[in-house]
Design a protein around this nucleic acid. Structure first.
Lengths: 185, 185, 185, 185
DNA sequence: AATGAATGAGAGTTCATTCAT
DNA sequence: TATGAATGAACTCTCATTCAT
């Protein structure tokens, strides 16, 4: 009798929040997109904030397990890891030209919806840590790797913004190329 | 009997929209911050969208006149121009740790509030053009300058995001340093 | 497989309704307090109104059998009967400082939830009748006994209200003392 | 352009809350009874709780100024004062057979809506103090007057309950008569 | 008998906007 | 121009109830 699973709800919510933002997306929007009535939606998440927390946590876990983890595959070269990383990441970020949910939600909410800050920080810390690990594998010093990792994340997030502004996925791809140029080997 | 000028309203609205985002900021918030009643506010702007258009246009003009223009001061070196650019920009972006209104509004609204897209594109195009002009002055080819300009804007916008995530203005400063390293002279 | 008996549900419901009132107490509150899910609750009572009817009837019967009946124990003196009455009544009314369910529900619902009126009337009629019987046993005329009985019930209900207002069970006790002073013997 | 005054809103709210109780009366009910839309109602009171606070405070003041004050008119006899008190009070309490708002709201909310407790306590304290003053004027000791005052309030509140249960205003009148019998002169 | 999912109505509240004064 | 009142839609969320499993 269950019309939908929690996982599907989360996936649909990711899509909507990513495209429309947190405040523009109403519980009704979300419910209808899930084929549910507004009221039924509260069976799964008992507040909009709780839903968003669920969404952010789920997405964070997904990145850790499926994407950031690629950085720690010491079987292949540093650069190859970064390439596999980008390969995995690209379709997610370019879909609907909606970019990165974490990035979007950060700029929309971080000064005002304090509840999400810790997940957001954790997400970006893990992302930077993953990149740092790759750069160390490429032979960088700890200090240097740290800096390059942060720079790379920023370039990608900046590129995602420009990608959305100019509706051109090529911008993201070039940013990835640019990051790959930072490698020695 | 006029309590406030349009310019002041715009300035106050910039602050609020930058911190709280477009959808979280209500007309009431804005009116009160301007010392007006909700009703009076509509004498100055007859819709929220119109206000936002005004805000974005005004800010765009301000940047063109006061900041992007620094790029075209051919009296000083390319690098010095970039430094003066950053000097002017920093206090604006770091205030309240709220970053760049255009960046914030982009990630919040661009997929859904189409009306703002053209100003946003114009703003970023002009920014990139200004940077490109500087890099050409530094001796880059047109192609190279174009690429470096885009990269620099992206790095700065990415840095602003990280600055807000980790509540650390140093992140922005380092990004500026990093951009300055791109100069040959 | 039955998790709970109807009697237990009724007892728990009495507690909740007495403390929180009819409208503030949701079916969910009741179900959870009974260790059931909302859905399961409807196996025992198929509407909130039906539950309340059950609760009021059960409580009415309980009073008739266990408390009002004390008035008809012609083996002991009138005053002694009244004392035994109060002794039985006090712990019920003072528990959680929540007073008398019938009194509470009366003032909350009687003008608007007509369905409960007849049980409420029956309850108070029986209470007054019991007191009247005691006062007749004390030697009062029928008329006089009637009046004293009504007065006594009113004083007690009034005292329960003040007890709740000032959070002081002593108020109820004094009202009982005051009623006992009405006895000749 | 104003459709209604705050005073009228309060008066209408008193009526509705008294008859239907706090939780059964929706903001929509109240707005419509005032000839307003739900949304417009928030122009006058910005929450249901705030409205209720306003209602209770206004009513408390009204009683202090118009009714309790009668107790302090030392020009006439104590008993005459009590009679004038009852005369003023009766039409209020018997209207719609809805009794005393403070009494009703007490039994419905006091264990659960803590916000109203202090006004409720103040109201009943003032009422008792007024009665006490009358009984002292009748020649009672302080102690005795105190007790009689409390008893009288309880009897009246108890009588109001029975009045509503049996839909008979005569019950209130008899309670008043009974209170008047407590006077020596 | 128990459950968890679904529902639709309605709760309290906020919002952008309009308009008479 | 300024205001305060009014509006209706939309928002988040709760509720009593139903029903397939």
């Amino acid at each position: 009798m269950q019309k939908i699973t929690i996982q599907e709800i989360v996936r649909i919510s990711i899509d909507l929040f990513r495209k429309q933002g947190y405040n523009r997306t109403s519980m009704n929007d979300l419910a209808l997109a899930c084929g549910l009535q507004k009221g039924s939606f509260y069976h799964y998440f008992n507040s909009k904030e709780a839903l968003m927390q669920g969404v952010l946590n789920t997405l964070h876990q997904y990145y850790k397990n499926k994407i950031f983890s690629l950085a720690y595959n010491d079987d292949i070269s540093a650069k190859a890891r970064m390439e596999s990383f980008f390969l995995k990441q690209e379709p997610i970020f370019t879909q609907d030209l909606a970019g990165c949910l974490f990035g979007n939600i950060t700029l929309e909410t971080i000064s005002v919806e304090v509840e999400f800050r810790s997940v957001i920080q954790a997400f970006f810390s893990d992302w930077i840590a993953a990149f740092k690990h790759i750069f160390i594998a490429d032979g960088c010093t700890d200090e240097m790797a740290s800096q390059l990792a942060k720079q790379s994340v920023m370039e990608i997030e900046g590129a995602l913004m420009m990608m959305r502004v100019f509706e051109d996925v090529e911008i993201l791809r070039q940013a990835c190329v640019s990051v790959l140029k930072k490698f020695k080997n």
